[in-house]
């Protein structure tokens, strides 16, 4: 297969493309809908937020909602920057560490031979099925046992072994041809070198996808802040936004919730734009086959 690289758009426009574009266009509109909605919603003034039937587009945009949100945060004892810092620290460590763990484990489970391999795969699959809510309290017991309540570790450790990421990555590593790895072994590469020089570059799209999945899971998560951390100064931004929006469940709170959800959404978008290049070039140059 030829190397396609970054340029996936064909240069020429052909008449035969029109029918495909016609088929895709309405679906594109559906897909774009939520984003347009979130952005519009955050700028709606009070009377439009509660208009019935609900309006999709904003007609008189204001910054009122953001203003209220920041005013409310100024009244709290802890500055917002503290929560932002907490969130960024936690999320960076979680994404990097869990990706390293998942790719290493995925490589071992997919390509190396050792005793108990199938058992581990089954365990991961079983864990995949299980809802996170159910293990909340046993996790708290573990965290308590390790003595890491009220530290950053309480935010980080529960997320490190992410079954979904491992499942996805393992499935992609399965697709990497064995002959490529064997060739590397013959040329004298060790396991770590194979992992670093062959597996990682080849499954970059899967890594990027897993990164986004982990990111958004952790970014909006409230449970670690809710249950494992008591210290207000160590909680995350998601928790803070949630309390702000919930504390004012009156009419004014609605606008703040809309603004908060836009603020929570923007990092997701940035993350996506950063990673989309490697995601979209999925496997275009994955070597053999």
């Amino acid at each position: 297969m030829a190397y396609k690289g970054h340029n996936i758009n064909p240069q020429k426009f052909n008449k035969s493309q029109i029918k495909i574009i016609i088929a895709i266009m309405p679906l594109i509109l559906f897909m774009g809908l939520p984003i347009v909605f979130i952005i519009n919603h955050a700028f709606k003034p009070m009377e439009e937020l509660f208009a019935y039937p609900p309006k999709f587009f904003v007609s008189k945009p204001t910054l009122d909602n953001f203003d209220k949100l920041f005013k409310a945060s100024r009244m709290a004892g802890i500055p917002m920057s503290r929560y932002v810092f907490n969130s960024i620290l936690v999320i960076t460590v979680v994404v990097v560490a869990s990706l390293v763990l998942s790719t290493m484990a995925g490589f071992a489970l997919s390509k190396l031979r050792f005793k108990g391999k199938n058992l581990f795969i089954n365990i991961n699959q079983a864990a995949l099925m299980f809802v996170a809510v159910a293990v909340m309290i046993p996790r708290y017991l573990t965290i308590n046992f390790l003595g890491i309540t009220n530290t950053y570790l309480a935010h980080i450790l529960p997320w490190l072994a992410t079954p979904v990421a491992l499942f996805l990555i393992k499935q992609f590593i399965d697709q990497v041809p064995d002959s490529l790895i064997e060739a590397a072994y013959i040329d004298g590469a060790g396991d770590f070198k194979v992992y670093r020089k062959i597996i990682i570059p080849l499954i970059k799209p899967a890594i990027a996808t897993a990164a986004i999945l982990i990111f958004q899971q952790v970014w909006v998560d409230l449970s670690t802040s809710n249950y494992y951390v008591n210290d207000e100064g160590l909680k995350t931004l998601a928790f803070y936004m949630n309390t702000l929006a919930n504390a004012n469940t009156n009419v004014a709170g609605q606008g703040m919730a809309a603004a908060a959800s836009l603020i929570m959404f923007i990092p997701n978008l940035i993350m996506f734009i950063l990673l989309q290049n490697s995601i979209m070039n999925t496997m275009a140059h994955s070597g053999l086959k």
Partner: peptide, 26 residues
């Protein structure tokens, strides 16, 4: 090879035992 397999899976396994398997059993 088996040794390397265990080395590669060990970090994940520790995390999984503490925060997946043990909570599941409990």
């Amino acid at each position: 090879e088996a040794r390397y397999g265990y080395i590669f899976i060990a970090p994940w396994l520790i995390g999984a035992v503490l925060f997946l398997i043990k909570p599941l059993i409990e």
